[in-house]
Amino acid sequence: MQTVEGAIEASIAQSAIIEKQGQKRIFKIIVIGDSNVGKTCLTFRFCSGKFPDKTEATIGVDFREKVVKVENETLKLQLWDTAGQERFRKSMIPHYYRNVHAVVFVYDVTKTSSFDNLTHWISECNQHKLGEGIPRILVGNKCDDQRNAVVPTNTAQRFADNHNMPLFETSAKDDSESDHVEAIFMTLAHKLRSSRPMMPPTSNRNSLNMSRNNSQSDQNLRCCF
C-alpha cells in the first residue's frame, strides 16, 4: 500500500515531468540511431502520414509533433529527430536527453553496423539517466528491402529482450506499412499514458518493481504485433 508521502512524492514527480498545456499532456520522445537508418522518414511518416519526397541529412536536431487520442485522452507527442553522425551524438544531442519521456532506437535492417552500434546508443542513453525507468522501443526500419535485409529478426528480438524493450520491424517508405508506423508510435503513446509515474526510480525497490512492470507491459505489447 502506498504511503501518503509516497503518493505526494509520486504526484510531484509526475507533475514535474508531465507538462500540461490546457488539458493536453505532452510527452517528449527522442529518436536516435545511426546515420541514414531512417529516423527522419519514420517521424515524418508518423507525423504527416507520408514518406518525405526529399530527405536530407539531419543537422543537429529536428522537431516534429502530433496530437493523438488514447482512450479518450488527447496527448501531444513531441518527437525529437536527431542527427546520426557520431560527432553530433557526443557533443550536441545530450542537451536533448533532458526531460525525455521515451526513447525510440532505430536501426536499418539492411545494415549490420547500424544494429551493432545500438549498444553505443543504449549506453549513451543510460549515461543520461534514461535507463529502464522510461519506455524504450526498438525499431528495425527499411523492411521493404527484404532482399538486402541482413539483420535477422530473431537476433534483433534477442537483443531487444536483453534490453527490455519491444521490437518492431517496419518500413517508413512502404505506404502499406503506414498504419504499422502509426501503430508503433501509438503503442508508445499507450505505454506512456499508462506507465505512471514515469520518473527514474528513487530507490532500488522501486526500480525493481518498475522494471518488472515494464517488462510485463513489453510482453503485452509484443503480443499485439
Binding site: 546515420s35 541514414n36 526529399k54 530527405t55 536530407e56 541529412a57
Partner: peptide, 10 residues
C-alpha cells in the same frame, strides 16, 4: 556518400 545521396533538395 550517404549525405550526398540525400542532398537532392540542394
Amino acid at each position: 556518400v550517404l549525405d550526398v545521396n540525400r542532398s537532392v533538395k540542394r
